[in-house]
């Protein structure tokens, strides 16, 4: 198996490059997550607000970012951001600016993630009886307390399943940033196969790494799910 020797660490093999790519993939997904969750929650709050104008604005947001192909969103953010920024900077100086691929990827993936997450949160909101909020009010809690102490714990419990799926989708979608020349796992693999002429081997390795990442995440998410659902009745 001389192919395997190409997986050596260091200058003679590609293992360190693949590892660096994997690290970027993981970092990108982790960096997108909080940003996507926060916007998703805000959009879901807007959808559950009962105020029609707010609901309409939130629905437009989800329709757009759920309907566009992720790749197109990425291009629009990357090239559009580049052009807009260039024009903005051009007002003051004539220096050249470049949009950071990592940030562009984070924004694009975050927009898509938040659109889907808002749907998950919105249906979780529907799963919490209105009586819960009323009871909290009757106990003298203010709105923030009621949200933090009564609604949020139930919201997390009801949405964790959907969010776990979205995380796995996000992890796979990070591969799209390889087309805007960001050195993620897939792009490193492209480089490796281009120089060694062993596409089958290197892409298999890359897909296996993705598979392992999903496997680790679903284990971790399963543990989190068990934890947030610990108050639930055990069902057979």
């Amino acid at each position: 198996m001389e192919v395997l020797s190409q997986l050596a660490w260091g200058a003679n093999g590609w293992a360190d490059e693949l590892a660096a790519g994997t690290w970027l993939t993981v970092r990108l997904a982790l960096a997108t997550l909080p940003f996507g969750l926060a916007i998703g929650l805000l959009v879901a709050l807007a959808k559950a607000s009962g105020e029609r104008s707010l609901e309409a604005a939130a629905n437009i947001y989800t329709t757009i970012f759920r309907g566009l192909p992720e790749l197109l969103t990425l291009f629009i953010v990357y090239y559009g951001g580049q052009m807009a920024l260039q024009r903005l900077v051009g007002l003051f100086t004539d220096s050249y600016v470049e949009v950071n691929g990592f940030v562009a990827g984070m924004v694009a993936l975050g927009l898509v993630f938040s659109a889907y997450a808002s749907e998950v949160f919105a249906s979780a909101f529907k799963g919490i009886p209105a009586g819960q909020g009323e009871a909290a009010k009757a106990l003298g809690m203010n709105r923030w307390q009621a949200f933090r102490l009564v609604t949020l714990p139930q919201l997390i419990r009801l949405s964790i399943g959907g969010l776990s799926n979205l995380w796995l989708v996000l992890l796979k979608e990070t591969s799209l940033v390889s087309v805007i020349a960001l050195n993620d796992l897939l792009r490193m693999t492209n480089l490796a196969q281009g120089s060694t002429k062993q596409p089958l081997f290197f892409y298999s390795v890359a897909l296996l790494i993705y598979l392992v990442l999903s496997l680790i995440s679903s284990r971790g998410l399963g543990a989190i799910e068990d934890y947030v659902k610990r108050g639930e009745e055990r069902r057979a």
Binding site: K172, S175, K197, L200, L207
Partner: peptide
């Protein structure tokens, strides 16, 4: 469990090999 783009690359470039 794996990205579609990676699968496309595997088949497309893999076949070329």
């Amino acid at each position: 469990g794996t990205p579609l783009l990676g699968q496309v690359f595997l088949l497309y470039y893999g076949a070329g090999q």
